[in-house]
Amino acid sequence: MSLYLFFDVGNTRLKWAAVESNQNPSTQQKKLWAYSGSINSKSLQSEEHRSELADYISKTLPKPTAIGFCCVAGQEAIFNLKSLFPQWNDLVWQQLNGDSPVPGMRSLYQESAKLGVDRWAALIGARALSNKNTLIVNAGTATTIDLLGSNGVHYGGWILPGLWLMQTSLASNTAQLELPTRTEHHGFGTCTNDAIIGGCDAAQVGAILYGIQQAKKFKLPIEKIWLDGGNAKILANEIQKINLPIKKIIEVTEGLVLRGVWSWLRQNP
């Protein structure tokens, strides 16, 4: 069995996945990855944890045909990642960057090298899944919202604090607001806890709705919205409460960044 192995090194989580080389990144199915997993990204800083991770992966799957990765956690994380498998030192680690060219796609970012590679990878992953006018929302530590046209052009996007950052900033920078506990809420909060939770949710959902309106200025009516990241299901649940057509075009997915690395690697064997 011939495998491709991918890594997505984020600020919070390190994720990996492997697929058979004859699979296609345009495939949509629940059980997509032959192997997958994730750990805290800080584990790369520990020699002991790196050894455990390398041992687990190398014993779980056969030697891959190729390894692709993207990283937003800095050069030290890249160095530590590449040190995992000395027994596979004949393999070249292929790194996706924010300015890596992709056939049929381009970004209008002023300095493409400064486009976050996680955003570029998610855009590539979304493009593999459809050729529609799309908003790609990655709701993690930060929430990113990017506009991708059916023509393959990335028109830019936004970066805003994720739900946790929004909530903790209120607790850290005010005298009387505590870190809230997520509860079921509807509309305006009638207690401080629900007011914070609901307000932060509304800010995230509002940004998505605003993105739909902004896309119209480019004459790009949004046909698909991909929600990925640790808070994707929370935002999807909040959007389902809104009586708007947007509910029909939203889909929660997992691993858009890994899918993007996969799609890029297939085009750059």
Rank of each mutant, 00 (worst) to 15 (best):
A54K: 04
N243W: 00
S36M: 10
V72M: 01
E254K: 15
L165W: 00
S130L: 10
N40R: 09
T134M: 14
A207S: 09
G37A: 10
Q204A: 12
M166I: 11
E238P: 03
T190M: 08
I67S: 09
L96W: 10
A54G: 15
N133V: 09
L244K: 12
I57L: 07
S83W: 02
I222Q: 05
A203F: 00
M1D: 10
F7P: 10
K30N: 15
G156R: 04
N243Q: 12
F6G: 10
I239K: 02
A142P: 06
S150N: 15
L160K: 04
V261T: 13
N22K: 11
I145P: 01
V205R: 00
W120K: 12
D146K: 05
G116S: 06
T143R: 02
T134P: 05
D99M: 07
S150W: 01
L227H: 04
K224M: 13
W262I: 12
Q240N: 08
I78K: 08
V257A: 11
L3N: 12
T174S: 09
L91A: 04
E254R: 14
E178V: 14
K217F: 05
F6A: 12
Q23N: 07
G198Q: 03
L147Y: 02
T174V: 11
Q28K: 10
A232S: 12
T181M: 02
F85S: 12
D90V: 11
G74K: 07
H49C: 13
L177D: 08
A66I: 13
I225Y: 01
S83N: 11
F188H: 10
D118I: 08
F79K: 15
A18E: 05
L177N: 06
N24K: 02
K217P: 00
M1R: 09
G230E: 06
